[in-house]
């Protein structure tokens, strides 16, 4: 019984890790740049398809395809930021919603055109498949891998934003654009890079997620709710908030489905509503 429980906990943490990787980019754009980017999933999809294409057509191994996914999505992010998103920083949130939904529709149709509507295959390398035995427990290898990736990303991001010059520039630009520009910070460049970072993380998540979530053209719409969920519960603009939120929601979801499969789908929504009512500004949100 206890073994089951630890197994469930492990799966929940792994599932939460995946939610975190995919959503953290949105927390960056929404919290730091105050842009409601519902097209976040489209960048994840770009990463996912980049993975599949280099793996199936060029024979690149899975692990090597992940950085490519990051770069592809980040590049798409920079291009769109420079050409379109930049014009809308001062628009209302509602206009931003309409704009980014428009992008989602376009990305879905374009992906269907180029790749067809079916699920895309991904072949994990042998050493990431199956299970490993640890202290009498069967743990999924790929899930362990996901958790490891999350730990690396969290540490790297925290270091980037809190310890580097670039991070300081981001924080300054967010707090006061005019003053930052006056201090010689190129605010536009900082925002471009931040946006690229957010998109790149989404792309990485898209690539990592194929094996669990699947990949087809409706991806950006299908999982939009999950991205928003993690960011809203965690509080936009932080790293810790979405991390805790993703883990809690992942554990609740897996535990709900395991112990009470009859009402499994309820659990995650109930958890979300309760968390939001108790913490209206998110777990790590700044109170105003």
């Amino acid at each position: 019984m206890l073994g089951n429980f630890i197994g469930v906990l492990f799966d929940g943490v792994a599932y939460g890790s995946l939610l975190f990787i995919i959503s953290i980019g949105l927390s960056v754009t929404m919290g730091l740049m105050n842009f409601v980017n519902l097209a976040h999933g489209a960048f994840a999809m770009v990463g996912g398809y980049a993975c599949v294409v280099v793996m199936t057509r060029l024979g690149v191994p899975f692990l090597a395809s992940l950085p490519i996914a990051f770069v592809a999505a980040a590049a798409a992010g920079i291009v769109l930021e420079r050409s379109l998103y930049r014009r809308l920083y001062r628009a209302t949130h509602l206009d931003q919603v309409l704009f980014s939904i428009g992008l989602v529709f376009m990305s879905i149709a374009a992906t269907t055109y180029f790749f067809g509507p079916q699920q895309q295959p991904v072949q994990l390398p042998e050493f990431l498949r199956g299970q490993v035995h640890v202290l009498g427990l069967d743990l999924g290898t790929y899930r362990l891998f996901l958790i490891a990736v999350v730990i690396i990303i969290t540490v790297a991001l925290t270091w980037l934003i809190e310890r580097t010059r670039f991070g300081a520039e981001i924080r300054a630009s967010v707090d006061n654009q005019q003053a930052s520009a006056g201090l010689g910070i190129n605010v536009y460049r900082v925002f471009s890079l931040t946006f690229a970072l957010g998109s790149g993380l989404a792309g990485l998540g898209g690539g990592l997620g194929i094996d669990v979530l699947g990949l087809d053209p409706t991806f950006p719409l299908k999982y939009m709710v999950y991205f928003l969920l993690v960011v809203a519960v965690g509080g936009a603009g932080t790293i810790k908030g979405p991390l805790f939120a993703a883990l809690i929601l992942g554990i609740f979801d897996v535990a709900g489905k395991y112990y009470v499969p009859q009402v499994g789908a309820f659990v995650i929504y109930v958890a979300m509503v309760v968390l939001l009512i108790v913490f209206p500004h998110g777990l790590a949100g700044r109170r105003t």
């Binding site: 197994g7 979530l213 299908k222 499969p261 499994g264 789908a265």
Partner: peptide, 20 residues
């Protein structure tokens, strides 16, 4: 007898239950 929701991203918990 397990019924999974139509929009279901992760089958792991259901399959774990089956395995157990």
């Amino acid at each position: 007898s397990i019924r999974t929701p139509l929009q279901n991203p992760d089958f792991a918990p259901f399959l774990q239950r089956v395995k157990d």
